[in-house]
Every structure is written in structure tokens, then in C-alpha cells.
Design a binder for these strands. Sequence first.
DNA 1: TTGGGAATTGCAAGCGCTTGCGACCCGCTG
DNA 2: CAGCGGGTCGCAAGCGCTTGCAATTCCCAA
Lengths: 341, 341
Amino acid sequence: MPSLVQDVAERAGVSVSTVSRALRGVPGIAESTRKRVQEAAEELGYVASLSASRLATGRTRTVAVVVPLLSKWFFAEVIAAAGRVLSRAGYDVLLTELSTPELRDAFFAAPRLQGRSDGALVLALQLAPEELAALEAQGQAVALVGSERAGASSVCVEDRNGGRAATRHLINLGHERIAFLGIQEAPGSTLGGVPPAERLLGYRDALADAGISPDPGLEFGVGNTVDAGSAAMATALTMAEPPTAVVAASDELAFGALATLRGAGLQVPGDFSVVGYDNHELAGSVGLTTMDHGVAEQGRLAAEALIATLDGAPAAVERLQPNLVVRGSTAPPRRLRAAGS
Amino acid sequence: MPSLVQDVAERAGVSVSTVSRALRGVPGIAESTRKRVQEAAEELGYVASLSASRLATGRTRTVAVVVPLLSKWFFAEVIAAAGRVLSRAGYDVLLTELSTPELRDAFFAAPRLQGRSDGALVLALQLAPEELAALEAQGQAVALVGSERAGASSVCVEDRNGGRAATRHLINLGHERIAFLGIQEAPGSTLGGVPPAERLLGYRDALADAGISPDPGLEFGVGNTVDAGSAAMATALTMAEPPTAVVAASDELAFGALATLRGAGLQVPGDFSVVGYDNHELAGSVGLTTMDHGVAEQGRLAAEALIATLDGAPAAVERLQPNLVVRGSTAPPRRLRAAGS
DNA sequence: TTGGGAATTGCAAGCGCTTGCGACCCGCTG
DNA sequence: CAGCGGGTCGCAAGCGCTTGCAATTCCCAA
């Protein structure tokens, strides 16, 4: 039913090879001929068969986006941004969610991207060297988001600085007992390897900078969910000497913490301060002070890096600086305000 | 570099056609032969070239997921659920975001799915008849989520019932002045056509059922964003006779409303009740009473419907009933409680 | 007028797999 | 013992496009 190159060729009175070249903008075709061919193609509603040209060229013009969990806002946002860049550049976007360890293992065990895509955009996954090698063995150009590997392009944020800035903000307000809600890989996680422990390190840095002695009891490592944040916050409140503020390694955790605080009848920021990390879409609506790290921009930059790699550019890594966004969830601790008034 | 059918054929001592058939499970191959071929393939790490088999068969084993806005939680969740079903069934998932009217028009103007996918899963978009026809003309099997079209499979929820149930819940609590925050297509929206006005109709139904005369001034139509909900709520509060409760057509709108209420110093549910719609991932953490409509299930069902269609089944439509999830954002209006105490 | 070369275009050989059809091998029936 | 039918397999013709290389045309300098 759809017309073929031949049809166009006949209609334009040229050979199929000329049609092929004319339509793809290959140089060496007279402008007049090209126009004639384009018109013929247009009239017939001709579109080159993808499978055929892929087979002939060996290129797919498709990029696989590999993500641990699509329904998390962070990933959706990154993918959306990356997708826009990619499709504008003429690439199709193939979605691959590796939501369980089984899926992840299966994905890397077989050459699943072979002939399916030209490149892979890998989000958050901490690739083992052999996993990265596997991708490359399948002829994939690869770009990473949220991790760094020798030989691969990547964009990542200076999370240690971010953790430090978030914590410093609280210290500047006068807080001294500050808890940290960290993301700890759950058993069922597919992230693999060491996720943003950087943020925790930044937290410790800030404490050290301020001469506050760290209390391991204030460092919580939980799954990256609202409920986990909520639970950890609840635990923190039962401590003999509870914290007066918390920095969460993600806004989701912070949301959970806020829920617990509200449930406990505590005022935020009156009785307790919290700062999150991500600048989640909904952070504004709950007035959460948080670290913004250009989520959409990460996607955009990674897509551009991948395209560059596909065009033969050498691997490059881009580092983003997170920024503190102050909203209404942080204030000086009650102690100070009481003394001050 | 990757080995070809021929290599496997030689290694197994058979012809290429036998290899092809053996590996794909086509009947008519002796079990012993099949096993031998599989071993040979395994040893060589052979994987059939996708482009080649796609060209030869004319099938892509790929499904395009078409979505207006990927970064919205609802869509991400639906896609994630659908994606799991699809990939388990051996289909690749191609992502297509139509975030602007221009993109949408361009998408339907050209046969963009031609030879790219076997089917399309269309989310939320209210397809014009010719748009649906265009997809089918490209040989796509299509399944819809959130809309219904003659001849196409779809899964949709009884939103009118949902709107009614949400409103009735408030009425049962004793509210009489209830506002409705509806989703109205913004100029830049790509949804097209009439989106969930059903929820509004349900709201009116409930009022009518209770003999409450509707007040058009209480019906707000805004964009589906937190900020819009926030703004509309602010407007509602300035009314001469403000409402005591609101039903929002989405949890995002509800989040915005909550933010405004909090900002205005009003207690929820003490001074004001709000019920949302979606059962958003974060609805629980803010204690939002809302309508659950099985978001993930919609994705799952739609994917299954699409696969069925691809397997030759006739179009079918699946209707889901939304359920009220009561949390802490709704209570009797202050008036009643004051009188009661 | 004529040879050289640049600019265009056509030829035909793939790209790697699928599949209709015929060949072949057996065990059996008549 | 000849012939038949079912079960297996191989042949070879595509699927529709790309591309190296040769052919043709045309313009201009010599």
C-alpha cells in the first residue's frame, strides 16, 4: 500500500538511487532534480521504509533510554527533557525500564540493544565496568546521568556541594542538631553500586566546617520513598535529644518528613526545619526549601552529549552545581527565636 | 562483528532457513535439530538482526506510546505499567511526547509511525476522527486511554461517577457550598477536544441529587497545574459567600488548593475540606482525600488490549470505576461542628 | 574542433533475515 | 515391491533501501 522508492523514481523520471540521494539530502544531485523528486515523493505520500534503510545503513537513528524507575518524577522529567532534544535531532526514543534486579541482569546478560539503537542514555544506574563494556560491545554510544565512568560521556551534579550547602543553610539559621535522611539502596533496587552518598558526605562536611561534632545516630539511610522518609522522621522524633532540623537527600523523603511532622503537631518551620533535594515539581506547593539541580537540564545536556558522541565527538563530562532554593520550610530553631524575642 | 545466521548454520551443519525456523520456534523442525541450532547460536552469541527481520517480516514488534506530557505523574505511571506488560510480551516501547500543538500537528500530518511500530497506545489525547484514521492508515493497531472512539480499543474510567462520588462525600459531611476546580484545556494544551468534563458533570449530578442549587460562580476551569489550583482557590476564598469545600478534578489542582489554604491560615479539614482526583503518589503524604482510579491498572489494561488487538482480537472497551479514598482533608464544615458541640 | 574533468545519474550488488515450494528420506500400505 | 504421505530441510527469491563505481553529459580551455 505505501508507495516505494520505485514509484517515486518512475514518477520523477529518475532512478531509485537518485531518489534515495535526493530525499536524504546527499550532495551530488542537481537542485532541479532534487526538487522534482521531492515533489513526486510528496504527491505519493512516500516515506522511506525504516526497516529497509536501517538494514542498508546499519544505523537505527534510535536511542535507548535506560531508567530504573519511570514513575519517579525525577526520571520522568529527565526523560522528557532528553526526549525533546533527541527527537528534534531526528532520533527515536526507546524506553527501557529496569525496575527489578532480574530485569537489570537480563538486560545486560543479552545484547538487548544490538541493532535496536545506536546509543544508550543511562540514568542513575551505577554501571559495573562489564555492564558498560557490554553496552559498548553492542555498538552503543553511551551517555550517563548521575554517574561517571571512564570513557563515557556523562552529566552529573556536584552532590557533595549540594549536601553541604543544604546543611550549611540550616547551620546558618542556628541549627545544631541536624538529621540527615539519606537514600540507601533497598534490596530490590536496581541502581546498583553506590548511589548519592555524596550528599551525605556534603552534610558531614558542613557539620565539620561549623565545628559541630557528627552524631551517627542522626544519619538515616532509607529507601527513596515518601513513606520511608516519614518513618525515619518518626524515629528521629523519638530520640532522647531529637534534632531541630533535617536535610533530606530527596524531596520525596522530605515530603514524608513533613507529613510526619504535621502529624505530630509540629509546626514547620516554627518547631522544625526541613530542606529537601531535587526541587521536585511539588516542592513549591508545600513550601519546601530544597536544592535545585536542574533536573530537566540534566536530561537536555545528556541528550546533547549522546548526540555529540554519536557524531564522533570524544567523551566529555559535564558537572552541574546545585542551588539552594529557600522557601518556607526553614527558619531559626525555636530556642533562638525565643531567646531573641 | 556480530555473527550472522550463516555462521550459526555452518556451525550447526544446517541451512540458514533451518536456523531461522529453529530459533523462532517455527514448527516443522525436528527437536534434535532445533536444540543443536540453539546451542550453536548460544555459543556464537548470535542474535538475529532486528532490522533484517523487520524488513523481511514487515512487523516491528514495537509499540509507540503517545503521550501529551511525560513529566506528569499520571502519564509516567500509566506508561510504566503499560511498558512492563509490553516488554514482557516482547514488544519494544517507543516514546512519543506531543507536548505542543505544533508537535501534535506535525505528528499526525506525516506518517510518523509508518514502519516504526505495529501499534500505538494513545494516552489522554482526544483524537479527532481523522487523527485516528491517520494512525490506522499507517497500519497501527491502536488502544486509547482516557477517551473512547468507535473501532478502537480503549480503557477509560467512569469519571462522571467519580465526580459525583467525590462531591457526595462532601455533601454527606454536611457541606453545601462546594466549589469545583476543573481542568480546562489551556491554549497550549495538546489534549485536544473535550477532556474530563465528565468529572464536572458528576459534581453537578451530586448537587442536584442533594437538591443543592448549582452556583456557576463556584465552578472554576483552569490549567491542570498546582499553580492554577492555587490561584483558583485564592479566588474562591475572596467570594462574598465563599465555599466550605472544594472538589478538584486532579490531585495537582488539589495540592495547589491546599497550599493556598495553608497560606491563608485556614485549617484543613477544620476550616475547609478538599477532595482531589487521581490518588497521586503524594496524595497520601499530604493526607488528601481523593478519587482513586487505578492509574497503573489503566496502563496495564490498555497494554493488554493493544496486544490483543495486535493478535487480531476485535476492539473492546474497558470501563473502570473510581473509588473514594478518604484521608484527612475532609470533615464536616465548621458550622455543623460548632452547632454539634 | 576536441580532450579533460567536473557534475550528475544509473547500475547492480549488497544489508541479513524470512518463507513458499520443492526435494528428500522413511516407514507403511496395498 | 512399488507407491504414497507425513515429516524435515534446503533453495532461492524476495523485503525496500543504500552506495561504490562506472557511464553519461556538458562546459570550457587549448
